[in-house]
Amino acid sequence: MSHLGPGKASTSVNGKDQILPAIGGPGGGGGSSSSSGGALRYPSNGKTIYHRPLNRSKTSELSQASFAYLFSEMVSYAQRRVTGIQELEKRLNLQGHPIGLKLLDLLLIREPPRSQTRPLNIITLLHFIKINLWMHLFGRQADRLEKSSDAATPDEYMIIDNEPLVNAYISVPKEMSQLNCAAFVAGIIEGVCDGAVFPARVTAHSVGGKEEGEMWPGKTVFLVKFQPEVLEREALIGKG
């Protein structure tokens, strides 16, 4: 990306004919606005995204039925043109990733100013995910947080949800028993981790339903595997 000249009209980064939201408009930077692309269009009620408050957590609950409907469409959309379950999960993961990136800032700004801090180590980040992110998405905390007990994989952490909301109305056929559609949620978690500069791979695994009469047949483990540089930095910060 070229550097923006001082006060000049901003150079287009992504090409001129990209579809912009009504608020985006052509870049009118520093006085001289670009002439291409037509006039800026505002929504009919005159309210752009900037006129809306960020703190509307009270009335922000959505209908689970409509979510389930949309989510089933997302899964079948992802299912098109894929050859295997892994690829399908990858696509679901990619759908969730940008949501995580955006939620990180939204959730931070909704915190009371006193506790508005960036997560600096793995534990605070995972607590942020377990508590804040889960509360925002599902209205409750995640059920458990675990560190891998295997000494060979100190970079693996597990977030456990006994009953993922996204899987409530999903029945996986026998031949696809490896599939867990909570890969979408794994993508959101991965987005949060990446956004907070803790690059990680997050995958969703079903662990319930192995035994008869089990309490949580839909139990899902989100396996968070951090990149080696995260652990390296963690060790350095811990020393300092």
Binding site: L4, G25, P26, T48
Partner: peptide
């Protein structure tokens, strides 16, 4: 920061995209 968060909430905004909204500039 509040306005920046609103800007990135746009579903058309991807991370590290230039913010070109004149409304943001006004804010």
């Amino acid at each position: 920061y509040e306005n920046y968060t609103k800007a990135i909430m746009s579903p058309f905004y991807k991370v590290n995209m230039e913010i070109r909204s004149p409304v943001f500039r006004q804010r």
